[in-house]
């Protein structure tokens, strides 16, 4: 009997934990929608491109960070190898883009 109540306690603790995580993820989603709106509005308003392009890129990077760390759980323990793989991928991306854009510089 005591054991039974014990498992129930663990289950309710787990449920509470899952609910907290879900709440965090909904906030993440709301922020992502908000950033998307800002990005589209900035383009609609027709602000000068020297200001808009850096803003768009920053908003995209923040959104992608949310996706990786909250939706894909990279913030959780035991995600060192996934993080290394993704940052490795991002490093290659930076190299490739610098290379391809530099080719057409002249």
């Amino acid at each position: 009997m005591t054991e039974n109540t014990n498992t129930n306690k663990i289950n309710s603790f787990q449920r509470e934990k899952n609910r907290d995580e879900m709440r965090q993820q909904i906030i993440t989603f709301a922020l992502m929608i908000f950033f998307t709106m800002i990005a589209f509005f900035a383009v609609m308003m027709g602000i000068s491109s020297t200001f808009v392009i850096p803003l768009l890129l920053v908003l995209a990077v923040v959104q992608v960070g949310f996706q990786f760390y909250y939706f894909m759980h990279m913030k959780d323990k035991g995600h060192e190898i996934p993080a290394a793989l993704i940052y490795g991928g991002i490093f290659v991306t930076a190299l490739v883009i610098v290379t391809f854009v530099a080719i057409i510089w002249w």
Binding site: G88, G89, T93, I97, V101
Partner: peptide, 18 residues
């Protein structure tokens, strides 16, 4: 796999930007 996918899309983005 996702690390590999990142590199794949990096090439496509690089080509597009160029």
């Amino acid at each position: 796999f996702l690390g590999g996918e990142t590199v794949l899309f990096a090439c496509l983005f690089g080509t597009y930007l160029a």
